[in-house]
Design a protein around this nucleic acid. Structure first.
Lengths: 128, 128
DNA sequence: ACTTAGGGTTCCAGTCATGGGAAGGTCAAG
DNA sequence: CTTGACCTTCCCATGACTGGAACCCTAAGT
């Protein structure tokens, strides 16, 4: 199949698929006319990548995950370790965002939000 | 003062300050030797920016916030609106991350993480 | 006088994972 | 024979910096 159908089936933009080829994540064959030709296994790989990306794994993590996936003899511990490191990073990001959100919430609450110029939000930004 | 001290006092890398000048957020004067010279008000502005950035506001938001800050007659409603939109986006980001985290947590739990190759994480990525 | 260290300056390139759009080739249908 | 939907490569832009090269300025130590 051509890139369009592969894109539809993998749930990825064609542009992204071309990029993935560029950086060596997939390697579709070419037809006589220069079009990329995708088989089931390529589409499967692309869907794998789409799923991994949707879980927030970086492209480098995805590369690792793919190679582990294709290594029949890998230890599941390696995959689990990767996932755990990633989960930790997500936890950290959530924590940072929650802190921001809490501060923002307080400031928003403290601000009247009317036509007057007095504003605790700006006051805080200006250093209290 | 020079950029180094301004950086220390504002809590921003000198490089970032130069970038902020580039994009028109600050406009320090120049000494005879070409060095940027920062006064108290520039440093204050920089600290304002640092604080706003640390709350996750985009540079564009910061630009808006600065101009509101400097507009003695602004309505606090405008600031509050901006902050609320931003808070909503943070909420959305937290929600997305939490979803990822939950899925990751389940997969990690299901994975033995030993020397055997069988791995529910890879199974999930491969489409169940 | 000379060197060294620690400032400062500009400009260019890279990050991450795409997205946009131009300029052009290919193909099936009407 | 043309339309329209595909496909190709290539280059530029994003956000908010960060790193590094190549160079200038100034003060202190030898």
């Amino acid at each position: 199949m051509n890139i369009g159908e592969a894109a539809r089936r993998a749930g990825l933009p064609a542009k992204t698929i071309r990029y993935y080829e560029d950086i060596g994540l997939v390697a579709p064959h070419r037809d006589g006319n220069g079009y990329r030709r995708f088989g089931e296994s390529e589409v499967h790989k692309l869907a794998f990548l789409a799923r991994a990306r949707s879980l927030g794994f970086s492209i480098d993590d995805c590369r690792m995950l793919l190679s582990l996936y294709e290594d029949r003899g890998r230890a599941s511990a390696e995959v689990r370790g990767l996932a755990q490191r990633h989960a930790k990073e997500i936890d950290a990001r959530i924590a940072r965002l929650k802190e921001m959100r809490a501060t923002l919430g307080e400031l928003i609450e403290a601000c009247a939000g009317d036509e007057r110029p007095d504003c605790p939000i700006l006051k805080d930004l200006a250093g209290g």
